[in-house]
Design a protein around this nucleic acid. Structure first.
Lengths: 319, 319
DNA sequence: CCACGACTTGAATAAATGCTCATTCATGAG
DNA sequence: CTCATGAATGAGCATTTATTCAAGTCGTGG
């Protein structure tokens, strides 16, 4: 069965096959090496590549009781319609790693629906990690629309690009918002909003059946600052005004009320809807705690995907 | 009922958590042991248990080019509407292990449909292994119905029980067929078929939207013989008459024509439909080769899930 | 044609994992 | 109460896997 070195097989194929043999077939890397006609080292590297490239996907099938209880408690406490709690990984490991597969599974459930839906998405590191975990599916009947502009301050259009990625995976028609994330001033913002293509996209986003967003903190390491949308001074002004977090660039205070100053006057994106459609926030980790408490207090979101540690904090904090 | 020292944590939870930390979090078993507060030994056993109990599911995300090509070739050659080819595992490993996860994924796709469907199932080792890989889902809107009786010659009702298992996993209403797999004679069979509950179940099975079956060989190790439905002499008589394989107990020849002798006079199950609904056969391995060639020649099936080696054989044999 | 750098490769070795086995512990029959 | 039974445990060891490193390969641009 050993394949000879065949130029027609590409590396990904070989890696996928090695991963398959290893994880599904339970062969040792020695056996795989023999099977594929390569050295044991190479077999090991292929298996590792298969895993790190996501060619092989691992998913937990068992609902861990503790997490289920946290989910129920969060729903009750904050009046959420939907909640998923992922078991935390060890301390010191990025909690995004824990929630991404779980959130991706939920996202797949939404995309698996057969009736056409409009799905609005934010951006950010977390959302990007989630989208990377979503597996390819064929959903030309849904639409994915961005809640905010795709042009960064330096003019690049590629910062945490989420819409393109998800559209790529799902083959769904996609509607990015071709404008800067923040305008120069209120007039500039009005100008952008008046553009026909922006108008259309904003309309679509506001009609979304599902809205999925991350959340940002307002401390010095705020995504808004790191990505250059806000200076540290502007951020300070916002926090002085009470800002504890932001979604889609819109800053809110500890009660979840949107502020009417600072960046909120120039941010061009669409606020998450306040109608009865699902608004799902994906977030975990210490930096997201205060923002989450605010968003939950103000009932800005109706669904939450987080990890165990964060879930415990949220419950304890508001006990 | 096995309680551990800590009454609040059950073993499955702990195993799931260990598996999660290991496969998703990439922790070592030492770290997991520390995290969970158990010995390294126990951590290792928990991880192994999580895997063997199917708490952790591994799936290949990357379509291996070679297998895709085989799928296309099989569809073209045999006029199939549907085909999946799983990468073969090593020689000497039961090919069922290779196809079960792939077939299970396809089965889940069917059950994931939101419009109610009737799904008819055969039995057998292969199908049983596939069903075991299907993950729990909530599908009370579908119906699962057995194509054949559930009573073995020795009176036991539990041989490769597929219907109950799948019903259990999907929470779908299920319709087993409460009668022997083979009748004593043609009259006896007519008698069973006249029973109201059998009649109803048969009607349902014949209206199935999807039919999923295994396939059996007619050599001395035929499932029909091993499970005691047929004596070796009766089998010989069938093969002498040209039988090369059977589905749901119905024997057919190399051209895929059902015979009109022997077991076919007393088998009580429902033949797979010959209308235009999908009839998917799940089979791989040397023993299934001749039966598959027959079923494909006679266009008894419209879909196939098999492995690479078998796929290659089928194509080469009919080149 | 050669020099350079980026990337691959396999040997050596360190680390992690899986297995066997003797021991412990709980349970229940005598 | 004692002893047999069997499951669970952790130590020790064999196997398997991951990493490191020096050497080799390939393509590119001078």
């Amino acid at each position: 069965m050993a394949e000879t070195s065949d130029p027609t097989v590409n590396v990904d194929d070989e890696a996928a096959r090695a991963g398959w043999l290893y994880y599904s077939g339970g062969l040792t890397q020695d056996q795989i090496a023999a099977e594929l006609g390569v050295s044991r080292q190479r077999a090991q590297r292929l298996v590792a590549k298969a895993m790190s490239d996501g060619l092989i996907r691992v998913r937990i099938e068992h609902p861990i009781t503790e997490c289920l209880e946290l989910e129920r408690a969060l729903c009750r406490r904050f009046g959420l319609a939907f909640c998923r709690v992922a078991p935390s990984l060890s301390e010191g490991i990025d909690p995004v790693r824990a929630i991404a597969p779980v959130a991706a599974a939920e996202m797949e459930k939404i995309f698996a629906r057969r009736d056409p839906k409009v799905i609005a998405l934010g951006t950010g590191r977390t959302l990007r990690a989630v989208v990377d975990e979503v597996r390819p599916m064929d959903c030309p009947h849904h639409k994915v629309v961005s809640l905010l502009g795709n042009v960064a301050p330096d003019g690049s259009a590629s910062f945490y690009e989420v819409i393109m990625r998800i559209a790529d995976k799902t083959r769904a028609p996609h509607y990015p918002m071709a404008m800067p994330v923040v305008a120069k001033d209120a007039a500039d913002r009005a100008h952008y909003h008046a553009l026909p293509h922006v108008r259309n996209t904003r309309d679509l986003a506001q009609q979304a059946d599902f809205t999925i967003v991350g959340i940002g903190q307002m401390t010095d390491d705020a995504p808004l600052v790191v990505d250059g949308f806000l200076s540290v001074e502007e951020l300070r002004a916002m926090t002085d005004a009470g800002a504890v977090g932001e979604m889609v660039g819109w800053a809110f205070d500890a009660e979840g009320r949107y502020l009417e100053t600072g960046v909120n006057k120039v941010v061009t994106g669409v606020q998450v809807p306040q109608n009865d459609t699902p608004v799902i926030c994906i977030a975990a980790g210490p930096s997201k705690r205060k923002p989450l408490l605010g968003a939950l207090a103000g009932k800005l979101i109706t669904g939450l995907v987080t990890d165990e540690i964060t879930a415990r904090f949220l419950l304890k904090q508001t006990a």
